[in-house]
Design a protein around this nucleic acid. Structure first.
Length: 198
DNA sequence: CAGCAGATAGACT
DNA sequence: GTCTATCTGCTGC
C-alpha cells in the first residue's frame, strides 16, 4: 500500500493532437519521474515545438533519420531524450508514425520531491531549480534510460495538472544557426510564471 | 552582461 | 579523426 494512486498518467489520445496545439496543451500538466530515491514531479510551464521536415532547427529537418532521431519518427507519446554538452534534454514525440515532430520541455515548476531535486542539483535557489531544460532533467533524474519509453506509463510520465490562466508565445531559444526557422513563434510558456527559463 | 569552459554522443570527411 | 550541438555555471568587465 505504499503506492501512491494520486498520479494517473494521461491517456495516449492526449498526445494525438497537432504539434503546436499539444505544445500549448502540455502547459500546466504535471511531469512525474519515479526513481528508487523517490518521486519528483513538476508542472510544465514552458515548451517549444519542433516540426520535422519543415523546421531547420529540428534534428529531424528534411526527414533526417538517424539513430538519434529515430524515435521522432514513431507515434506520438514517446520520450525523446538527448544529451547536449553536459546536460540531458527531454522531448515529447508528436505526430503520427513517420512524422518526425516533437515538443521540447524547457521548464517546470517544482511540485513534489523538492528535497530530492535540491539534492541532485546541489546548492542553488528554488527559482533556479528547474527553470531550464538541462536543469529540470538533472533535478528530476531524467536520463538516456528514458529514451524511447512512453509518457503514458511509468517511471516517467505526464498527468493532469492545472489550467494556465494565460499563455504567451515567442521565438525559440538556442537555435541561432537555423536560418529562418529561428523566428518561428513556436515557444509557449505560462505568462508570468517565475520558473520559465527567461 | 558578454565570454567561455565543461564533457558526451552522433554525424560527417 | 574532427566538428557540432534544443545548455549551464562561472569569470571578469
Amino acid at each position: 500500500m505504499e503506492q501512491k494512486a494520486d498520479f494517473v498518467p494521461l491517456d495516449e489520445s492526449f498526445f494525438q493532437q497537432p504539434t503546436l496545439q499539444l505544445a500549448e496543451s502540455l502547459l500546466g500538466c504535471l511531469l512525474v519521474k519515479e526513481t528508487k530515491e523517490g518521486t519528483a514531479a513538476g508542472f510544465i510551464v514552458e515548451t517549444e515545438a519542433y516540426r520535422g521536415p519543415l523546421d531547420r532547427a529540428a534534428h529531424s529537418f528534411n526527414n533526417r533519420r538517424t539513430k538519434r532521431t529515430e524515435i521522432m519518427f514513431h507515434e506520438a507519446g514517446r520520450i525523446y531524450t538527448y544529451v547536449m554538452h553536459t546536460h540531458c534534454l527531454v522531448n515529447v514525440v508528436t505526430g503520427e508514425e513517420g512524422v518526425p515532430e516533437a515538443v521540447l520541455i524547457r521548464a517546470v515548476e517544482p511540485y513534489e520531491g523538492i528535497d530530492l531535486m535540491f539534492e541532485r542539483r546541489g546548492g542553488t535557489s528554488m527559482k533556479n531549480l528547474t527553470s531550464g531544460p538541462g536543469k529540470l532533467t538533472k533535478a528530476m533524474g531524467i536520463t538516456m534510460e528514458d529514451y524511447g519509453n512512453r509518457f503514458d506509463q511509468r517511471p516517467l510520465y505526464i498527468t493532469k495538472g492545472f489550467t494556465p490562466e494565460d499563455i504567451s508565445t515567442g521565438p525559440r531559444i538556442g537555435i541561432d544557426n537555423s536560418g529562418e526557422a529561428k523566428h518561428y513563434p513556436w515557444r509557449f510558456w505560462v505568462t508570468g510564471n517565475q520558473y520559465v527559463s527567461r
